[in-house]
């Protein structure tokens, strides 16, 4: 016989289960259907006529799509690295030092997180146009405008995550290290950094996700000669919807999920430490 449902066992109540199911269907049905129809023979995305992988072949042979894809991955990678460095340093500085203007810096660093993306997008658009940002640079420097924009909204997130991690840090460890003769650098490298690692990985994951998820900043900062994945898809969607778009989207979804799974695996072993 089953145990009766306890008052707090909400997940065993029928209506809660139904609610959860409905929400997950709502969240996943569009994506699942998008993926399913990337294998559909019909050009018109509506009726299922048979299985094919042709659209993947087309997407992979579409040179500008591939270029856009590599560009976006590159943007995500570089902006993640920069965000982790900037955010990690800022978090440490804010954690460690007392200085005049600290609340101001705190507030300004939180701003990119909260303001509507479109405001930052148009501001950067005008900024690049007015300072005459160099164009026609060799790859991947030609992506610098987009990368800079992504770092602006990603590194404050990294700083928040890392700082939350540092809250539990015992500073006497650093003092002990220095008392025992280690230099500032050695202390940082061997004592502080290993403790920060979990926060840094979580921050990197977040920065990567934000970069791959972004459309608005990318849309406003990518110049006419740099194609990025979301902007390319945007123009494809506006012209005509073919399963090629579905195939390309599926590849990006798979890529992101794979990346995150790997990152999560990375994070697991160190979770218990510290």
């Amino acid at each position: 016989m089953r145990n009766p449902i306890g008052p707090l066992e909400f997940t065993r109540r029928g209506w809660v289960r139904l609610w959860l199911l409905a929400v997950f269907v709502f969240l996943y049905a569009p994506i699942v259907i998008l993926i399913a129809f990337s294998f559909n023979q019909s050009r018109r995305n509506i009726v299922w006529t048979g299985f094919t992988t042709d659209w993947y072949g087309r997407a992979l042979n579409n040179a500008s799509l591939i270029e856009a894809f590599t560009n976006s991955i590159m943007i995500a990678l570089i902006s993640t690295v920069l965000s982790v460095i900037l955010g990690g340093l800022l978090a440490l500085g804010l954690y460690r030092f007392r200085f005049p203007g600290k609340p101001v810096l705190d507030g300004v660093a939180a701003l990119p997180i909260v303001i509507p993306e479109i405001c930052l997008g148009v501001a950067l658009l005008v900024f690049y146009a007015r300072v005459g940002w160099p164009v026609g640079l060799p790859w991947p420097l030609n992506l610098s405008q987009v990368i800079i924009g992504h770092v602006v909204f990603s590194f404050p997130f990294v700083a928040v995550v890392v700082r939350a991690r540092m809250e539990g840090f015992d500073r006497s460890l650093e003092e002990a290290s220095k008392d025992l003769g280690a230099s500032e650098w050695q202390t940082f490298w061997n004592v502080t950094l290993p403790y920060m690692k979990t926060g840094l990985i979580a921050g990197a994951l977040l920065a990567m996700t934000l970069s791959l998820d972004d459309f608005v900043i990318t849309f406003f900062t990518s110049g006419p000669e740099t194609i990025t994945f979301p902007v390319k898809i945007y123009s494809m969607v506006r012209q005509s919807v073919t399963p090629e778009v579905n195939a390309a989207s599926t590849i990006l979804i798979l890529f992101t999920v794979l990346l995150t799974v790997i990152a999560l695996k990375f994070q697991k072993p160190s979770e218990g430490v510290g």
Partner: peptide, 10 residues
């Protein structure tokens, strides 16, 4: 983890 544009398109 899916790009916002792709979700809107879906």
């Amino acid at each position: 983890w899916t790009n916002m544009l792709i979700r809107t398109y879906a």
